[in-house]
Amino acid sequence: MAETTSRTLELLNLLQTHRQWAGSELAERLGVTERTLRRDIERLRELGYRVVAARGVQGGYRLEAGSQLPPLLLSNDEAVTMAIGLRLAATQGLVDGALTTQTALAKFEQVLPAAVRERVNALAASITPETPRGGPVEGELLGQLALACRDHERIRFAYVAAGGAETNRVVEPHSLVTARRSWFLVCFDLQRDDWRTFRVDRLTNFFATRVHFEPRELPAPDAATFVERNAQSFARRYHADVLLQVSLARFTELFGHWATGARVDSGRPTHTIWPIAAETMETLVSTLTWIPPSIRYTVRAEPELLEFMRGTAHRVVEAVAE
């Protein structure tokens, strides 16, 4: 009996780690006849596993989703990974994430061997996840988006931008990425005819169109890199040109790598144009304080930014006035 149970568990492990197995290959792996294999398959079905058999040259056995959740068979390393993943899920901004993961984790860790549980606790103690920003994300919505990415299905949704403007989008989803304490959807925006990223917590009215598409080539090595590039581009939303009355050579000598992007002013070889950018106007203004008092300069920027600079300068003068 013990040998049969052990073999059945080994069979389950094989079915979980491969899309489809030929019957002869499974029987050879288990060291049994194909008749014994069929009996073991029936035992798994009785336990609630939906094992489908297909005839023919391309046939074999495969494990499919059923109507209820049967027991899972995990290796020690897989169990550790799953337990750590559950603990991190509570911090990723999911709706009811903390409660759901705590109950799931309690059930899961209850059956872990002591040595495996010790590894989980040691790893969890050394991990400090970032606190999510923005609004909570529905787990169901993440699941729907993930399926649309997997199945290459066009979707529609409403999106609220950072400034409050709401638009309706039709996109071809590519990937879901967690970055900068938020969930992002990487997709090709059909209305903009370009690749875009959308914060999932700002996405509503999801609708699956059932229209499938041929995947496009992402203009980046991977989705995480694409999200980071977009985030960096957005982070530098305020720009200005600083016109310095100093040669480019002298400016480079003074500022080193911070002079990257600086260029000679057209028609005035003794003057330098230094482009600067920052996420906030406050940060951009603080950049100017690094310019030595001996160098005269002027700033070219959008009226809003220039007005902010004037106001800041006025407050500073008032603050230090006797």
Results as ranks from 00 to 15, higher is better:
S67W: 15
Y61R: 00
R55T: 07
N13G: 15
S24W: 14
L44E: 06
Q68I: 14
G48P: 08
E42K: 06
L15W: 05
L44M: 03
S67A: 11
A54T: 01
L26K: 00
V52I: 11
L30H: 06
L63M: 01
I41Y: 10
L14K: 00
A27D: 10
G56K: 07
Q16V: 14
G23C: 10
E25Q: 07
Q68T: 14
G31P: 06
Y49N: 01
E28Y: 09
R29T: 07
Q58V: 07
L26R: 03
Q58P: 07
E28P: 07
A27S: 07
W21V: 02
Q16K: 09
R39T: 09
R45V: 01
L44R: 03
G56N: 12
R43I: 11
R50D: 08
E46F: 09
G48V: 05
D40H: 07
R50M: 05
E42C: 01
R35V: 07
L26T: 04
V32W: 15
R38H: 15
E34K: 10
L26A: 02
N13L: 15
G23I: 12
L11I: 10
Y49L: 00
E46P: 05
L9W: 15
V52R: 09
E34G: 09
L9S: 11
V51P: 02
S24Y: 14
E34T: 09
R55G: 04
L37Y: 05
L37E: 06
T17Q: 13
E34A: 15
A53W: 10
W21A: 01
L9Q: 12
L37M: 09
E10M: 15
L15F: 01
L44W: 11
L63C: 02
L37G: 08
Q68H: 15
A54L: 08
L14D: 09
G31V: 06
V32S: 10
G60T: 00
E28I: 10
R29M: 14
S24N: 08
A53R: 10
G59K: 03
E28W: 14
T33Q: 08
I41A: 12
V51A: 01
Y49S: 00
G56D: 03
T17F: 14
L47V: 05
D40A: 00
I41K: 09
S24R: 08
R50F: 04
R39F: 11
R55C: 04
G56T: 08
G48L: 03
V51N: 00
R35T: 02
T36G: 04
R29Q: 13
G66L: 06
R50G: 01
E42N: 04
L47E: 13
L14W: 11
Q16F: 13
R29V: 11
R39Y: 08
E42T: 07
T36P: 05
L26E: 03
V32Q: 03
T36R: 07
Q68C: 12
G48F: 08
R19T: 06
T36D: 02
L26S: 02
G59D: 06
A22S: 10
E46I: 05
R43V: 03
D40C: 08
V52Y: 12
